[in-house]
Computed example of a mutant assay.
Amino acid sequence: MHVTPPPVTRPVAAPAWWQVSGPGFAALIGLFALTAIYRFDGGSEIQRAFDLSGQSLLLIGLVAYLVGAALTVPAGLVLGPRFPTAVAISALVALFLGVLLAAFANDGTLLLAGRAFAGLGTGAAAGTTVALITKLRERRGVVTGLTAALAVLALLLGPVVGRLISEALGFRLVQLATIPFLLAALVVNAVIGIAGLTSAKRPVPPVPNGPPYP
Rank of each mutant, 00 (worst) to 15 (best):
G119R: 03
N106A: 04
T122C: 11
G121E: 04
A148S: 15
V93K: 08
G119V: 01
L120G: 12
L112C: 09
V142S: 11
T122Y: 07
I133A: 03
D107L: 11
L95K: 02
T147D: 09
L110Q: 13
G114T: 07
L95T: 04
L92M: 02
T109W: 15
L101T: 00
L111C: 03
T109M: 11
A151K: 02
V130Y: 11
K135E: 15
N106F: 14
R140P: 08
L120R: 06
R139N: 15
A125H: 09
T122L: 10
A88M: 01
F104E: 06
K135H: 15
A94Q: 04
A86R: 14
A124G: 13
F117T: 05
L97F: 11
L97R: 01
L95I: 10
G121P: 06
G119F: 00
L132S: 04
A116T: 14
I89K: 00
G119W: 03
S90Q: 01
A125I: 06
I89Y: 03
L150T: 11
A118M: 12
T109G: 02
G127Q: 07
A148V: 03
T122D: 09
A124T: 09
V93M: 06
A102V: 08
T129R: 01
T147W: 04
G127V: 01
L150I: 08
I89E: 05
R139A: 13
I89D: 00
G123D: 07
T144D: 07
T122V: 05
I133L: 08
V99S: 08
A151Q: 13
I89G: 02
R140E: 13
L150C: 13
S90F: 05
F104I: 05
F104V: 02
T144Y: 05
I133H: 00
F117K: 04
A105K: 09
E138P: 00
L111N: 08
A124M: 15
N106T: 14
A94L: 15
G127I: 00
T144E: 09
G127S: 08
A88Q: 02
S90K: 00
R137T: 15
A113I: 15
L150A: 15
A86N: 06
L150F: 15
F117P: 07
A149S: 13
A125Y: 09
G121T: 06
A149C: 02
L110E: 15
